[in-house]
Design a binder for these strands. Sequence first.
RNA 1: GCGGGCGUAGCUCAGGGGUAGAGCACGGCGCUUACACCGCCGGUGGCGGAGGUUCGAAUCCUCCCGCCCGCACCA
Length: 881
Amino acid sequence: MLDKTYRPAEVEERIYEAWERAGLFRPAGREHARPFCIMMPPPNVTGSLHMGHALTFTIQDTLVRWHRMRGEDVLWQPGTDHAGIATQMVVERKLAAEGRDRRQMGREAFLAEVWKWKEESGGQIVRQLRRLGASPDWRRERFTLDPGLSRAVTEAFVRLYDEGLIYRDKRLVNWDVALQTAVSDLEVQPIEVKGQLWYIRYPVEGEPGRFLVVATTRPETMLGDTGIAVHPEDERYRDLIGRHAILPLVGRRLPIVADPAVDPTFGTGAVKVTPAHDFTDFEIGRRHGLALVSVLDERGRLNDNAPEVFRGLDRFEARRRIVEELERLGLVDKVETHLHTVPHGDRSGTPLEPFLTDQWYVDAKVLAQPAIRAVEQGRTRFVPKQWENTYFDWMHNIQPWCISRQLWWGHRIPAWYGPDGRIFVGRDEAEARERARAHYGEEVPLERDPDVLDTWFSSALWPFSTLGWPERTPELARFYPTDVLVTGFDIIFFWVARMMMMGLHFMGDVPFRDVYIHGLVRDERGQKMSKTKGNVIDPLELIREYGADALRCALLASTSQGRDVRFGPGRVEGFRNFVTKIWNAARFLSLYEVSLDPAFDPSTGRIALNRWIVGETAKTASEVTRALEGYRFDEAARTLYRFVWDTFCDWWVELAKPLLTGEEEAVRRETRATGAWVFAHILHLLHPMAPFVSEELWQRLYGAAGGMLIVRPWPSLSLELVDREAEAELGWLVRTIGAIRAARTELNVPPAARLVLRHHGASPTTRARLARHEEAICRLARLERIEREPAPPSPHSLVVVVDETTFSLPVGEVIDLAKERSRLEKELQRLDAELGRLDAKLADPGFVARAPAEVVELHRERRAETLERRERLVEALRRIA
RNA sequence: GCGGGCGUAGCUCAGGGGUAGAGCACGGCGCUUACACCGCCGGUGGCGGAGGUUCGAAUCCUCCCGCCCGCACCA
């Protein structure tokens, strides 16, 4: 006997272990089965499960379980990402708390600490994924820094270098002065800040007393100015083009150049040009051959290119001092407050500096071309489709990808430098050495590049590196290209685009056929969840409180395509109730010793109720399947919810009760078998979304029958099981009971009052139905008995019209006649309004002529039915009046 | 500035040319041993606004308003 409520905490761990122990997460290895593969986007090792993870992994697990049940050879490849900056920061903070510093420790000792940390704390998210019910092939779990993947990274780097697609270049990068590393454009957070705009007077050379006023938000960079630019068509400055200004505080001669990048309407229309400290200025400088003078060091302090008094000052301190000095010299024309966006590092939160350094770059422009074509040709498809625009946009304007990071934690760049700085790239030091020897003709000392690669470089290889590339493994042959990638739109650029580029380049084919993009999980008010806002919901807490199935279903039901998910615990509670409902339906079935009969053939049922529910099951199965095929998880969840709760529990179970306790053995047997069959299908359909409770109930109710639910075949039912007649009969029954209940409630008939139901004008079909369902109707509508009434209804009755039948329920003197009259009149009004609409439509020659015949016919039928109902109602009203 | 999304019941959201839907919330009633994490009944909107296409529009088109998100950007 099942307990009264389902207690997920007592079930989930046991079930999960049973699956895993039985090896059911692994590809089945059936040769003829179609392979199906999802690459798990590797969460950061430092991470712990948040709602975004919960959503994405629930979706993936649902797909994976569904395909597994469809008999496919499923691989869900799991793993974690070493997350360069994030992890290094975590460990550095920990060390700092112990009073240690990585620079003092040295590279090797520090890395040993990181690895130690990873071994001890890095597995958290993987354990948490199990709590969610995720079923990837854990045996194949990978880590981006493990030997296999590291080898893939090195191989990819060397090949790209040899092909000229990776190169070293001196350019401006976004420099994080706190972390002292380059970061990519994508790691930049533009933050709006209220700053100031200083108007500074630069003396014009050779014209004492004349000044050129430039506006800047960053006065400290002026020490690196090497020019001034104006718009070529700006009349105000036309005479100055080609002449020079003198840089205050420094005395440098600044050529005044004309460049179309200058916006004549902003500030004074004249711009100081600091090519070493601004991306736009860098371009202007290049066009006009201006010098590059970098005045900052890697920690954001003024370097030796600055006048001596300013050297060593922090950039913001320097700004203050420079402005002071300019004011003293009377060179500040004016100061305005100015709202502008300043790039910040998304990890450190500090303002970034455009900084001139040598870095490694991937020639993304070249790699992007096949990746663009692949999506254009539909070889990879985004769902929802509108994300393709975002992808194309970025790919068409793609910039060189800076892949070097001044960190220690990560894949060290496989490049060595000769004594003259010449670069030798190799798979290992020996290869680099060999290449160096070939170049120099002798053995020379080599020094390895100290930097590591951007974490996304290794992630970009994930779809094939995890399958064994560069080896040509059987897994690679079988599972690449993978079927679908599930992820959020926030990493289309970071990751999806780069996997496309690398996959096409190294494997010659797209990494995945479909990219399913889901929304972000927000809080109930639509705010992004963040620790600082304090509005984060912890999925593990929800699992503890409501169970993993409830959380999963709530998430799935809330994700509509192309929309973010607003999420509150209320939703989970609703699905916890749903799970309990299912549990109790199972309890009901086991109470009547309903058990699966392998010989049961759903198409041979004789009882309308059973034929009906079988058909409804078939419809539901096909709808759920279709929903999943279209990545419509909300629809799948909703369909199942309605079927289980409304159709099966509220109607089939209630209507089956008299049959299950009835006299006829054949009826009892058929009803039991049907109930078992339907419920078994419910559990199958439910399993991808709610794996724990479905598996638990499957084993408790049907366990002996055929192994674990997780690997049972997905229902595929013919819609021929739908019986139109049974459908009509049950539809009528539901309407009739509903109408009687509504009338009772409306007239305040006490629920306990058992009434007699009289019918008048019923067709033979209806009379047969009434006879068949008498017991159920009486029970569900609280009736004493049903009898035929030769004449139209007597006064002191409630009147209910269903189709051609007039039902009356004598309620004696207690009935409030006035109230009943007004109820019927209201109903009459509604029918009249409806008739008016239908008549107007049918009278419209345009409608009759142009609308499809079926639609016109439908309207005619509707009109006839409405009219009939109306007549009966009028009749009933006359009797009462 | 470019691109995209959204505006439907009190709230969250489905629907997407042919009688407006769900969950939650709310109100009333609880007879009914699967379930109070429950049952029954009920009200609520005419689908942001204006125009157009159509026999017919919440659904398609145009414009407008409001909110949101990317990308680019003013030194």
